[in-house]
Design a protein around this nucleic acid. Sequence first.
DNA 1: TTGCAGGGGTCAA
DNA 2: TTGACCCCTGCA
Length: 286
Amino acid sequence: MNSKTNFSRVDINDFNPVHTFTCGQCFRWDQDENGTWTGIVSGSCLRLNWKDGACFFYDIGEQEFNNRWASYFDMGTDYGAIKEELSRKDEHLRRAVSFGSGIRLLRQDLWEVLISFLISQNNGMARIKQIVHSLCLHFGKPIPGTCDCYTFPDFSSLADAPLEKLNICRGGYRCRYISAVAQIFKESLSLLDELKTLPKQKAREVLLSLPGIGEKVADCILLYSGLDRSAFPVDRWVKRVMEALYFHRETDEKSIRAFSREYFGELAGIAQQYLFYYARENRIGL
DNA sequence: TTGCAGGGGTCAA
DNA sequence: TTGACCCCTGCA
């Protein structure tokens, strides 16, 4: 293990770790009492501090960041321009964008996102994080050089686990879905890569054919893995905020999704994230 | 302390 | 369209 600690400043525009890591898109980033953020990403443990708008990574140089982590932080996307464009749409969105101005949509591992959002159904953030953590602890592999960091379990580890053992993560009925989905991916090893190359609509159909994955979870998987940034997941919070700000009446999820894809266009998914964070933090629509 | 409602939904009837 | 599903948290 490398005992020395190096800090490297990395400039990430339009980024605030509080906004990005707590806006509900990821479940494996935590802040300790000193303000340091630790995240487990693609089998590595990342640590960073954020002070006065500057980002300092532990043990990662700028070059390594550019080579290995730039894609994860979606560095190829100009969030400044996106925020400007969305803010011009209407006053509601301008407020939401301003409120969550440090949100960047991470490009996360497809398998991890798939299982994590399968777990998210009918669940709250705190419990989702708990279940994901437990799943990694019991079925992932320890990451060398760290005390208690574990990889996200691969599909074989989850497929091979008896259901009663899987239940150790306290996922309830979702464990049946995890097991069934893991077995499907274990039996069809190329399916995960195929999903990445299929047209967006087709990828969505494949996801919807999997047990435990409905419209909302499928859209989350597409959006947060980076496969489709125009996906617009409609959960309870998004339904509430859209009804309160745009429809002014009760509206079904399908209509909200159709309106949003039309109104926000290719930026629908990013708009959704600003709106979701804005709604949840300010309890809009309750 | 206890009971109940609701939670970033999905599925089967 | 509706209720069951696991289990946990927040609240009265």
